[in-house]
Write a protein that binds this DNA or RNA. Sequence first.
DNA 1: GTTTACATACATTCGTGTTTGTATATAATA
DNA 2: TATTATATACAAACACGAATGTATGTAAAC
Lengths: 221, 221
Amino acid sequence: MYVNKFLHNFKVLSVIMVRKTKEDAGLTRQRIIDAAREVFLARGVSRSTLEHIATQADVTRGAVYWHFKNKTEIFHALRDQVFLPLIDRMDDTLTVESSDDALTQIEKSLCDTVHELNKNIEMRQTYEIMMMKCEYVDEFATVLQQILDNCSNITSKFELAYERAKAQSIIAQSHSPRALALDTHLFFSGLLHMWVKDVDGSKFRFQATELIKSHINLRRK
Amino acid sequence: MYVNKFLHNFKVLSVIMVRKTKEDAGLTRQRIIDAAREVFLARGVSRSTLEHIATQADVTRGAVYWHFKNKTEIFHALRDQVFLPLIDRMDDTLTVESSDDALTQIEKSLCDTVHELNKNIEMRQTYEIMMMKCEYVDEFATVLQQILDNCSNITSKFELAYERAKAQSIIAQSHSPRALALDTHLFFSGLLHMWVKDVDGSKFRFQATELIKSHINLRRK
DNA sequence: GTTTACATACATTCGTGTTTGTATATAATA
DNA sequence: TATTATATACAAACACGAATGTATGTAAAC
């Protein structure tokens, strides 16, 4: 017990790294993923070296190779950890039953996603990596297909919501839910792309919520 | 004269490459750019080697280094040649005066861009490279700023058109031209991204024109 | 005692940039 | 117009660093 406390101090001080418990190994793994995010963001995925990542994580390449097979595997770990949850979350806010009318629900779902991106730095950075700091070829091409699939999925959710809106008679009967859903989806993926590219926030980020609201209002009867 | 004909045959047969005139050098330069497009598309920009490009262009790296300082310079040459003209074109179709009403003009402008992408393979491939096969870091980061600037520019053009539409009383007075313009811009950049990602054309490409039309019809009073 | 969780050292490949060589086009000169 | 000089448009060879993967070493946990 006393010894553990002693070692713990060493660990915290980082003078001598003596990490061995499973718990510690888990932390190391996470540090590597976090480091990869920073490095990917700054240098792009292909220019990022395992040495860069190791240094940033304050370990050696040995540790990196212990936890991951190669750079691609780190990439996927990063993606799974941060990217996918956002999609799930959006899925949820759209599907869950609510006292709001259908249009408001769509609006809230979109705003919620943007809000999440705003406050969650890691998620924002990961998004930025996926959209601007990575080349979709070879082993990354599969990710692309997943993105397309997710898009289909989200669009279907939009469509269902618009059907409800139609049933609630809050949109014009002339518009087809399918077309509205596709339009909203394209609008939102455009917004996300611009949101990410607009690093200093002067063009899109500051007014993202308003853009969403006016997009939705356009539909309201 | 006779000798020239003789040499010409050699050139055409590609048995011995004897190219030296300025004209021939220009062709070689263009071949390198075309080769780069193919290689970038297949392997991504960072994984593309000057050796890959040279081989594809049927020359050696010597020729590549003669015409270009490095890979980045080839990238920019490719971009300038194919990417920028499309933007100019869109700019034009939006600005030029026409007998159509303002909404129709926006619609035609968007459809025209999609149509151009459909028939112009090189343009399509270049777009694909810029959007999915390239990492926007370091020397490529400048390109990103240019994209944002172009977006502002296009959005302004949309806004002017929507003001005309408002003056023509073909849209509801309650909508602000600025908001409509931003919405259209986000819709269209979303569409272009999806259009490019949808390689087999089953999700977006086949119905791109209809998507545009229904986007515009949503605005019509 | 064995496995875990790394650090260290090594071998090898790959891409880049540069240098050198060379045949031909083109300009200069006589 | 014929000859000569120089610049052009590459090909081929070289030198170098950088990144990868693997193999080995090792101390602590279990």
